[in-house]
Amino acid sequence: MTAVLIAVAALLGLAAVFGAILGFASEKFKVEGDPIVEQIDGLLPQTQCGQCGHPGCRPYAEAIAEGEDHNRCPPGGQDTVDALTDLLGRDELTLDDDGAEDADVAKVAYIREDECIGCTKCIQACPVDAIVGAAKLMHTVIVDECTGCDLCVEPCPVDCIDIVPVKPTLQTWGWNRPAGIGQRPDSRIEVVNL
């Protein structure tokens, strides 16, 4: 009987000691702040389009840090989801693009100037100040700054804003990925002018 008592006492003693150490450590080495938000924000595409249900990328980053699913960014595509999966060490998710337009191609807004009435509504709607213009003067989109979020489309009273895919230029053109195993890497084109 004494053996059992000794064993119990020893275990209790051990438990007390380790409990004390652990309790102390959990207070002493508490992690303050949440730098993860910055990292998440860094991976998001910063289109500020709101398709995730949050007003801007940073709020979504904060929401992700607090446990929201990280697959709600259609502009970022599956790549962003995967990158976030890596960063957060969470379960892999597939992109949840309910109700979103296809996001594979880069797009920018284009204002048909003849129809623009200069109401400035799109300017107010643009999250990155990529539209210039003044009241009663036609507006125009700074293509380099436009993230293609299409938030300006809805407010326009005369529907003069189109979201057009960015055309490749000689500077931005790049080679395609080859077709892959089992495919010929070439193609044929018809030539007439010879």
Binding site: Q48, C49, G50, Q51, C52, G53, H54, P55, G56, R72, D98, G99, A100, K121, Q124, A125, C126, P127, C149, L151, E154, P155
Partner: peptide
């Protein structure tokens, strides 16, 4: 049906 959960990030739409 698919439901968009889109919100306005900024500015006011009137």
């Amino acid at each position: 049906p698919k439901v968009s959960r889109r919100v306005r990030t900024t500015g006011k739409v009137s």
